[in-house]
Nucleic acid binder design. Structure first.
Length: 1079
RNA sequence: GGCCCCGUGGCGAAACUGGCAGACGCAUGGGACUUAAAAUCCCUUGUCCCGCAAGGGACGUGUGGGUUCGAUUCCCACCGGGGCCACCA
């Protein structure tokens, strides 16, 4: 064990002690037993599971597909976090096998990726070599834990026989388009379809191409009228145009998009690989850069990825994270006319907004610096354009990294010199550019409504743009909004405001005071009706809020309280006052944008008026109007962006794509897969401002012919010179489908056979466990690929993972100095019980929980723990630490407790001197009863993944068995071993064989439980008097309420307690308790 | 800043649907065995108070309120810790 990982010296109960009886359960014995059974399992293929159609497959059993997130094999080997999830699934799988399931429990390695490449660069050893070595280490360690994986199904993403199919799936996506109107086989609308279908439909004239390249459906009799409104047909297009149309529809496409570019790593990164503007690996700065990259059209699946979250059993937090990442919002797209548009620019500017109801408040517009309008304006400036400033701003915005953007959220921007027309007000409004508007979302342009959007408000204040209020909240709405936002305020209270403060006091104390309230309300309403200025209203509200602390415990209930207070008045006509009160409105403007609910004001134009409508109604009305004018429509938008799939590095899957001299791309035919990763001796990244894929260094590989690359001769003549795609796929490629490959790991004809798929993947993976850090990466990408494969009929389930679970992080102890910095554990001394000092300074330190890290020297190496206690103890400890989903600190002191438990369990069953079984002929009924209860509870606890309490139950049983005479019979030892076997499989195999069995305990059925032994004949019920337990009565388990009542009231202590009281009520919960209410 | 999760002994925790708070383990103190130590086994241990003792009482699940016969559990607010997102119009 690593030194000083514990708050105190190592326990003396170390398993390494070889003294004592010859057959005592110690580290040596554990080691012997464990290695023996691991070899036995391997030799007997104990955990190899058959596929449908194979000899020995039992179709009558239900299937259980249990999946661990496969590890990324690093040079450091397993850390203690890996076996936590792996042990949990191992227990579950062993249990399910005993319960009669066909269990698929596979393991593999996610071995392509940046860390391996960087490690190789550091060490100068080729990543293929270091990765293979890491895999061997991982495999050896995993086997040493005795996990019941079916090793015959092991896969590694770097194996050409594996990535052949990764490339094949890529080509599937490449040759698929999304038809949003297609009826799916699951009844939904919208589906991925083979791109050949699209070509066929275009050729037949069922579809045409719209003005901006979009695919449109043409009714058969309507073809001519279609062409009349700018729709072109397939036969009208040149080959080049046809190719462009088709390439535009592919789910895998080359897109010119703003991507995350990391110069230091020399590659682009996906959105989930960028954390706080820095690369997830290495923490290097990431820039936004428009680049031509392979992209996946995951956005086509956004709605389905969102909707189907409802159909899967995942942690709700993970579902929420995915839903927020997908980021659906409803709003409208609106075209604003551009006045005197520059050449080459459409005469309108399209914006997206979720608040079309505020259009009358749109006093200016903003476009992203990357917006085409800006570029055109620089080329053809208007008189008011300040070219120098505009150009400088665009330059600066481009070079600003994400971190810089995030660090200073101060609004910046420049007027473009362009003006647009607000279609609702008919007013001329300026168009600005600013980097708070993002090109990647919506249309890259907004209508700015400073009165009702915080960002627009900030911008308008800074650049002195007009602010127009168009939403007033009703008094109640406003109160709630302001209370919740707890605004700052500066105004001095007006004279009459003190009456409102009184009102506040009234609300707080809730003492009637109806006359006072009525007077206040009348005063308030009079002032409103007499047209008091907005300022006085506002100030009143602000004062109210300044006393918000007094009503802090009523926050959120504000409206209810106000209304209740009105009801309490007992006025002649409270309904009228209440009505007036609710419908009073006030101005919101006070150093802030008002984004809460309310109704439209100042919103009447020549053609349309929204005045008086609530926000929702106003949205509907204005959208209808815009639609009728032909300048707007309802629109749903998503935050989700298409998935950047190219990486400019070496250690990844090559794309099965080549380019001809014109830059057209062609797929490598299936028969020519895999496209093997070429050997490279120099794979250091090229640090640059522009992407330079490393595979470009493999000249002979890159430059080839269509025939040699395996492009279909129908697409290109074999002798055509082509260059291969030199980007590689990201790490998430191989992990997006590995769970499918396990089902049929050695199939060379298909990525998975249909039989294996429909059996194992029926309803998806039954149980999937892994860390929550993959919530928006792997777990979203896998769902996307799976849905595409589903649409194409390649898989039968809509979702890959039916049930998902996240294990908690295993942390460690570290030591904190007075200044809150952490002191590495190897520089800490424990001078007395619980007192720690830093060796160098002698300063006191306090123990704290911290993440395991090399620098803190608090990393625990699983190999050391196994050497000291054995794998069974290790497994047991990690499961006993606490709830699986919780993060919990590793405390070596506690391991001894689990070790001692196994030792006692062993001693209970085996004579430590002779090694023989020490079963008794008879046993006590109590022990038998306890055994049944244990079996029942352990089974139930495994099902609900409460391994810690299952273990506690077994400890209780062993403790009871140890102190009982006679102890356990052979039959009881057998059933106890069966129960413990999922947790400590090696020890239990040994017990099982000592009982005379020649077969593995792993294939035995789970012991049965006699339900009658789970119930007691009589129960002891606590008797509470006024909520405190004062006595206990013992009654028959099936006693009626009357019997229980009589027994409770007859109890001596109860009588004594009730001596000077009278019984008001007796509450009886049969089997639970009695509560006597007395005065 | 927004959203989500979590706060129970000296420590890890248990209490599954609102019904005996602290199972089980660690650590602690005491004892048995031993020449001694280790290992092992037994007992003790939420806090405070009364009692020589047996025993008894009060308080107690981050804080303050609420609902209920009854709250670790449900509701509201606050405090503390962790996670995710963060100019998405």
């Amino acid at each position: 064990m690593t030194q000083n990982t514990t708050p105190s010296p190592r326990p003396d109960s170390s398993g390494g002690d070889a003294r004592g009886p010859q057959y005592r359960y110690n580290a040596q014995l554990a080691d012997t037993i464990e290695l023996k059974w691991q070899a036995w399992w391997d030799a007997h293929n104990t955990f190899v599971v058959k596929n449908p159609g194979e000899p020995g497959f039992d179709a009558s059993r239900p299937k259980f597909y249990c999946l661990d997130m496969f590890p990324y094999p690093s040079g450091a080997g397993l850390h203690v976090g890996h076996p936590e999830g792996y042990t949990a699934t191992d227990i579950l799988c062993r249990f399910k096998r005993m319960k009669g399931c066909n269990v698929l429990h596979p393991m593999g390695y996610d071995a392509f990726g940046l860390p391996a490449e960087q490690y190789a660069i550091q060490t100068g050893v080729h990543p293929a070599i270091t990765t293979k070595k890491s895999i061997e280490t991982f495999r050896r360690q995993l086997k040493r834990f005795g996990f019941c994986y079916d090793w015959s199904r092991e896969v590694a993403t770097i194996d050409p026989e594996y990535y052949k199919w990764t490339q094949w799936i890529f080509l599937k996506l490449y040759s698929t388009w999304y038809d949003p109107a297609f009826q799916r086989r699951d009844g939904g609308v919208g589906s991925g379809r083979p791109i050949t279908d699209l070509v066929g439909e275009l050729e037949r004239g069922v579809r045409g191409i719209g003005p901006s390249g979009e695919i449109v459906a043409l009714e058969s009799g309507n073809v001519l009228s279609g062409s009349a409104i700018g729709i072109r047909r397939w036969h009208e297009l040149s080959d080049r145009e046809r190719r462009a149309v088709i390439d535009d529809q592919r789910l895998a496409y080359i897109g010119e998009q703003t991507v995350n570019w990391c110069p230091k790593l020399g590659t682009v990164l996906a959105n989930d690989e960028v954390i706080d503007g820095k690369s997830e690996r290495g923490g290097y700065p990431v820039l936004r850069k428009p680049l031509r990259q392979w992209m996946f059209r995951i956005t086509a699946y956004a709605q389905r990825l969102l909707d189907d979250l409802d159909t899967i059993n995942w942690p709700s937090s993970t579902k929420t994270i995915q839903a927020e990442w997908i980021g659906r919002s409803e709003g409208a797209e609106i075209d604003f006319g551009i006045i005197d548009a520059p050449k080459g620019v459409e005469p309108f500017l399209r914006v997206y907004t979720t608040r079309p109801d505020t259009i009358f408040g749109a006093t200016y517009m903003v476009v992203a610096p990357e917006h085409p309008l800006v570029e055109q304006t620089l080329r053809h400036p208007r008189p008011e354009t300040n070219i120098t400033a505009l150009r400088a701003y665009v330059e600066q915005a481009r070079n600003r990294s994400d971190i810089e953007r995030q660090e200073s959220k101060v609004k910046t921007g420049v007027f473009t010199g362009i003006h647009a027309l607000n279609p609702a007000t008919g007013q001329k409004i300026p168009v600005w550019t600013a980097d708070y508007v993002l090109m990647g979302y919506g249309t890259g342009a907004i209508m700015a409504v400073p009165a009702h959007d915080e960002r627009d408000y900030e911008f308008a204040k800074k650049f002195d743009l007009p602010i127009r209020d168009v939403i007033y909240p009703r008094l109640v709405e406003g109160m709630r909004y302001y209370t919740e936002h707890n605004r700052d305020h500066e105004q001095q209270p007006e004279s009459w405001v003190s009456s409102l403060a009184d009102f506040l006091g009234l609300l707080t104390t809730r003492n009637a005071g109806s006359e006072q309230f009525a007077a206040i309300m009348a005063d308030v309403l009079r002032r409103r009706d007499e047209g008091e200025s907005a300022d006085s209203w506002e100030a009143a509200i602000d004062v109210l809020l300044s006393d918000a602390a007094a009503v802090s415990n009523r926050r959120g209930a504000t409206k209810a309280i106000w209304l209740e207070a009105i009801e309490d008045l007992g006025l002649d006509d409270p309904a009228d006052l209440r009505h007036r009160f609710e419908n009073a409105s006030f101005y919101a403007v006070s150093g802030n944008a008002y984004t809460g609910p309310g109704h439209a004001v100042n919103s009447a134009g020549n053609d349309v008026s929204l005045d008086g409508l609530g926000v929702d109604d106003a949205k509907q009305r204005i959208t209808q109007w815009l639609d009728a004018q032909g300048i707007g429509n309802r629109k749903v938008n998503f935050k989700l962006r298409d998935w950047t799939f190219s990486r400019q590095r070496y250690w990844g899957e090559p794309f099965p794509i080549v380019f001809d001299a014109h830059g057209n791309h062609y797929p490598v035919s299936d028969a020519a897969l895999p496209v093997r990763l070429p050997e490279l001796s120099d794979y250091a990244p090229i640090e640059s401002e522009d992407p330079l894929p490393l595979l470009g260094k493999a000249r002979d590989w890159m430059n080839t012919t269509a025939g040699a690359a395996g492009v279909s001769p129908d697409a290109l003549p074999p002798s055509t010179p082509v260059t291969r795609e030199t980007n590689t796929m990201p790490g998430s490629a191989g992990s997006s489908w590995y769970f499918l490959r396990y089902c049929d790991a050695h199939n060379s004809d298909r990525f998975i056979s249909r039989e294996a798929e429909s059996y194992w993947m029926d309803g998806g993976v039954d149980f999937y466990i892994g860390g929550s850090e993959h919530a928006v990466g792997h777990l979203l990408y896998s769902r996307f690929w799976h849905k595409v494969l589903y649409d194409l009929g390649e898989v039968s389930s809509r979702e890959p993972f039916a049930k998902l679970f996240h294990q908690g992080l295993i942390t460690s102890f570290s030591y904190q100095r007075a200044d809150k910095t952490l002191c590495p554990n190897d520089q800490v001394d424990e001078v007395s019980e619980g007192v720690y000092i830093e060796r160098a300074t002698g300063a006191k330190l306090s123990p704290v929980v911290a993440k395991m890290s090399k620098s803190l020297k608090n990393v625990v190496n699983p190999d050391d723990v196994i050497a000291e206690f054995g794998a069974d103890t290790f497994r047991l400890y990690e499961m006993y630490m606490g709830p699986l989903e919780q993060s919990k600190p590793w405390n070596p002191r506690d391991i001894a407790g689990c070790f001692r438990f196994l030792q006692r369990a062993w001693r209970l069953c085996v004579d430590e001197e002779t090694g023989n079984l020490r079963a008794t002929e008879t046993t006590s009924p109590d022990l038998e009863k306890l055994l049944h209860r244990m079996i029942h509870k352990v089974g139930a606890d495994i099902e609900r993944l409460a391994f810690n309490t299952a273990i506690a139950t077994m400890i209780e049983f062993v403790n009871a068995g140890t102190s009982a005479t006679p102890t356990l019979t052979r039959h009881q030892i057998g059933r106890f071993a069966l129960c413990l076997a999922p947790f400590a499989p090696h020890l239990c195999e040994e017990l099982w064989s000592k009982l005379g069995h020649a077969t593995s305990i792993a294939n035995e059925p789970w012991p049965s439980v006699d339900d009658s032994l789970l119930r007691d004949d009589s129960v002891e019920l606590p008797v509470q008097i006024a909520g405190k337990v004062r006595a206990r009565v013992t009654v028959a388990a099936n006693a009626t309420e009357e019997t229980i009542r009589a027994a409770a009231l007859a109890d001596e202590k109860v009588i004594a307690f009730l001596a000077d009281k009278s019984v008001q009520k007796v509450i009886i919960v049969p089997g639970k308790m009695v509560n006597i209410v007395a005065k």
